[in-house]
């Protein structure tokens, strides 16, 4: 099935449900970890050009901390958890009680491994929920961590799809931490980018092929 030509709004709704279930589990995991309330936005599922993809987190140059892993198995694709770097700093400072922690300036090993572990927990809970829901086998690589320009980070997730198309179907779910009296909220994006030939597997598994 050429998914990009045949995708219907019904298919997009199914993908939204996947984003919903995955991110809800990840939000619960994060909420337990931080002992705070975590909300999530309604997932956005869209087919976007590569350049529009860059605008999802404020442009290709936005300084972010990103966790990336590759999924193999019944379904293949890339998965990212992306936060603006200043917000990732706040999160890790709170988690390891190190006030001066900064991803931009010689970050401590402890903070880096805390972020790595958070990536593990969040992506693990997202993907296991997805796997339970679809009954598909998903084998994620260990997550890798980088703090850099969003464009430089997300482009690795576009390599597979770019061999087929100039557009990408992205399942974008954001989660937000609300804290009493906090001036800023902490928010992160999950991007699930299935390889183009994985969509029919996903839809078939849910009986909508």
């Amino acid at each position: 099935m050429d998914i990009q030509q045949n995708i219907t709004s019904f298919h997009l709704d199914v993908l939204k449900e996947i984003g919903n279930i995955g991110a809800a589990h990840a939000a619960t995991a994060l909420s337990t970890l931080l002992n705070t309330k975590i909300d999530m936005h309604v997932p956005q599922v869209e087919m976007v050009s590569f350049n529009d993809m860059m605008e999802r987190v404020g442009g290709a140059e936005t300084f972010v901390t990103g966790i990336y892993l590759r999924i193999e198995g019944d379904v293949a694709g890339g998965m990212f958890f992306i936060m603006p770097v200043e917000q990732a700093n706040q999160l890790i400072r709170k988690l390891i009680h190190e006030k001066s922690f900064d991803f931009a300036q010689s970050p401590s090993e402890l903070g880096l491994s805390a972020m790595q572990e958070m990536g593990n927990i969040l992506s693990g809970s997202y993907l296991s929920a997805l796997s339970d829901f679809t009954k598909l086998k998903l084998y994620p690589t260990p997550p890798a961590l980088a703090s850099d320009m969003f464009g430089a980070i997300i482009s690795i997730g576009l390599i597979e799809v770019s061999q087929i198309s100039d557009y990408v179907i992205v399942i974008d779910t954001s989660i937000i931490e609300h804290e009493e009296n906090a001036k800023e909220e902490v928010s992160g994006h999950f991007f699930l980018i299935p390889d183009p030939n994985s969509f029919s597997t996903i839809f078939t598994s849910l009986g909508v092929g």
């Binding site: 590569f50 350049n51 860059m54 442009g59 290709a60 140059e61 850099d148 320009m149 969003f150 464009g151 430089a152 980070i153 482009s155 690795i156 576009l158 390599i159 770019s162 100039d166």
Partner: peptide
Amino acid sequence: VGIAQLDVATQKQTIRTSGLGSC
């Protein structure tokens, strides 16, 4: 210039692309 795009600049212009990673 965006990802997977090309363009040309002449005098009195500069030409830029943002967020190169593996590209």
